[in-house]
Computed example of a mutant assay.
Amino acid sequence: MTSARLSEKKPVFVSRIPIRWGDMDAMGHVNNAVFFRYLEQARIEWYSHIGRGENAGLETVVVHCYCTYYAPLAYPGEIEIRTYAGSPGRSSFDIVQEIRRSDTPDTICAIGGSKVVWVDPKTGKSTPLPESIRKLMID
């Protein structure tokens, strides 16, 4: 996914996360696995932002995730994660996220994302996206 193709997606949330010293590895940069934690944190913050309300008792499950790295990150600093939502399906939607350093916002350090399925935790089966969630992605 390139930044240009993000124009096809709807921007839905921006999160800022500090880079912690413990996020770095022996090479002196943020470990590749930590990028997935950053993406997860921003995704959960977006979920909290949109609220559960009428959708209480329903959950999301990540069925696919990826991350492409473009530039290293290192402590100290702060990152900005821009979250975009793709067109929703019956019970799933795509999320694409850009990771940038807050002090150099024109530089994309990584692009990652996930395919998320809306599920009923009682049955473990997919369920149609609630209309209120669908609306957030298409309006």
Score class of each variant (00 low, 15 high):
Met1Tyr: 09
Ile111Met: 04
Ala42Cys: 09
Glu80His: 00
Val63Asp: 08
Lys122Ser: 14
Ser92Tyr: 03
Pro88Glu: 11
Leu129Arg: 05
Arg5His: 08
Asp139His: 13
Cys65Phe: 07
Ser3Lys: 10
Asn55Thr: 13
Glu80Pro: 02
Ser48His: 12
Thr104Glu: 15
Leu129Val: 12
Asp139Ala: 11
Glu54Val: 12
Gly124Met: 14
Glu131Leu: 15
Ile108Ser: 02
Arg43Cys: 11
Pro72Ser: 14
Tyr84Arg: 01
Glu59Lys: 02
Ala42Trp: 00
Arg16Phe: 07
Asp103Ile: 08
Glu131Gln: 15
Gly112Asp: 09
Arg134Leu: 13
Glu80Trp: 00
Tyr84Thr: 03
Glu98Met: 06
Ile17Val: 12
Met137Leu: 11
Pro72Thr: 10
Ser132Phe: 13
Asp139Tyr: 07
Ile95Thr: 11
Ala85Asn: 01
Pro88Ile: 07
Gly57Phe: 14
Cys65Val: 12
Glu80Thr: 03
Arg90Leu: 11
Tyr47Asp: 07
Ala33Met: 09
Pro105Ser: 08
Asn55Cys: 11
Thr60Gly: 11
Pro121Gln: 10
Ile17Ala: 04
Arg100Asn: 05
Arg101Tyr: 01
Arg100Trp: 06
Thr60Val: 13
Lys115Tyr: 06
Gly53Arg: 04
Ser87Met: 03
Asn32Val: 08
Val63Ile: 14
Ala42Gly: 12
Ile17Thr: 13
Met24Arg: 00
Lys115Gly: 07
Val61Lys: 06
Pro130Arg: 06
Gly77Leu: 06
Val117Asp: 11
Ile111His: 03
Asp139Val: 09
Gly57Ile: 14
Thr127Met: 13
Thr127Ser: 15
Phe13Cys: 04
Ala33Tyr: 03
Ser114Lys: 05
Ser114Thr: 12
Gly53Thr: 09
Gly113Arg: 06
Tyr47Pro: 02
Pro121Glu: 11
Ser114His: 09
Val116Asp: 10
Arg37Ala: 07
Val116Ala: 08
Ser87Glu: 05
Pro18Val: 02
Ala42Phe: 06
Gly113Ser: 14
Ala71Ser: 04
Ile44Ser: 08
Gly57Glu: 13
Tyr70Cys: 00
Ile111Tyr: 03
Lys10Met: 06
Glu80Asp: 08
Trp118Arg: 07
Glu98Ile: 05
Leu136Glu: 15
Lys10Glu: 03
Val117His: 09
Met24Ile: 02
Trp21Val: 08
Thr60Asp: 07
Ala42Asn: 06
